[in-house]
């Protein structure tokens, strides 16, 4: 492999893309190419702190003031994982309740008269819980759906 071919290959690489093995070997063995590729790589890093144009003065204080003056959006501290955990907990208790001794007695005593309203009430409870979760996380759900759609 010639030096100019190795350098051309190297310059065409995307960010984070690794050179082909034969190019890597050439660069490893060739002092000139090693020097040139390092020059380019270091320049790319140096450039990331720059920009084409510059503001006459920073705006971060204005922005922070504007943010402070505005009503800060309500921040959610409860993670989706915790929501799911509680959901599973509710579901598990619904499933476990009929096995409870006291309730087993009620069931024996009232039969369907007890079981049907119980299932309806617990079903409503878990539906309500799910609705609250969806209503408070609409944007995130929308985002995740469009994210997976693209994939």
């Amino acid at each position: 492999m010639k030096c100019n071919e190795a350098i051309e290959h190297f310059l065409k690489l995307d960010r984070y893309e690794k050179p082909a093995v034969k190019v890597r070997i050439h660069i490893f063995l060739c002092k000139d190419c090693r020097r040139e590729t390092r020059l380019v790589a270091e320049s790319l890093i140096a450039l990331q702190t720059g920009s084409s144009f510059k503001l006459e003065s920073g705006i971060s204080n204005n922005i922070m003031e504007a943010i402070g003056a505005e009503q800060c959006p309500q921040r959610r501290d409860v993670s989706s994982f915790k929501w799911l955990f509680v959901w599973v907990l509710i579901l598990a208790s619904i499933i476990a309740v009929p096995y409870n001794k006291q309730l087993g007695f009620l069931r024996m005593h009232f039969g369907v008269n007890f079981e049907l309203p119980f299932v309806i009430v617990m079903g409503l409870a878990i539906t309500l819980y799910s609705v609250i979760y969806i209503a408070t996380h609409v944007e995130e759900i929308k985002n995740s759906v469009s994210f997976y759609d693209k994939k």
């Binding site: 920009s51 144009f53 510059k54 503001l55 920073g58 705006i59 971060s60 922005i63 922070m64 501290d77």
Partner: peptide, 23 residues
């Protein structure tokens, strides 16, 4: 998570880059 004042770091890092998109 609520440490709103840290947003200043983001503005400081990117203000000129965003301004360049504007230009």
């Amino acid at each position: 998570k609520g440490e709103v004042r840290l947003f200043k770091h983001i503005v400081d890092r990117y203000e000129n880059k965003i301004f360049s998109i504007g230009m």
